[in-house]
Nucleic acid binder design. Structure first.
Length: 168
DNA sequence: GCCAACGTTGGC
DNA sequence: GCCAACGTTGGC
């Protein structure tokens, strides 16, 4: 299972909005690298950090999970949408979106400067100077460190079989 | 609001 | 295929 980080400006769509909606289509991505991560690498069940960009402070605000693989982003077909893509057609779409579902809002959001203070995250894409990529992979170690720092315990042994093997 | 970094566009 | 101009992102 892979892990990811996806950015959204909370003034547009926040972790609280997702907590309310339970699920949403992650529409509006207009960057090829970010799109390719969605169409080529994301699978159902992948964990995704919800990052608040252009926020005060910028922070990782919660966790979500991929609930459906990439499909054409409907906003590219809507002339009234900011993300309208005149070159796209239903048979040859340009942009894609995954569906994500809410997992958790971190009781303590992890601000960018706190993340920078963690040596284990040195190589994280998010923390690279000039990094703008709105969808990026997060390696297992970084995922674990961030969850721990946020006081969040991932429910990795969620199947009945797995749970039954856990010593009480 | 500023501006550095980056991605895209389009002329050549 | 190069690269200057332009537009966007996103921290500060």
């Amino acid at each position: 299972m892979k892990h990811w980080l996806m950015k959204s400006e909370p003034s547009v769509y926040s972790v609280d909005d997702l907590a309310r909606d339970k699920k949403t289509l992650w529409t509006g991505v207009r960057n090829y690298q970010a799109r390719n991560y969605m169409t080529q690498d994301m699978t159902v069940g992948d964990g995704v950090f919800f990052y608040h960009s252009n926020a005060e402070p910028p922070c990782i605000a919660g966790l979500m999970r991929v609930s459906a693989v990439a499909a054409p982003d409907p906003s590219q077909f809507d002339p009234k949408s900011e993300g309208y893509e005149p070159r796209a057609s239903k048979t040859a779409p340009t942009w894609a979106c995954v569906e994500v579902e809410f997992v958790a809002k971190f009781a303590r959001a992890l601000a960018l400067d706190e993340l920078r203070a963690l040596p284990a995250l040195e190589k994280m894409e998010l923390l690279r100077k000039g990094s703008r990529l709105s969808i990026q992979p997060v390696d297992d170690d970084a995922f674990t460190v961030i969850c721990k720092e946020a006081g969040f315990v991932p429910q990795r042994l969620s199947s009945r079989k797995a749970r039954s093997t856990v010593v009480p």
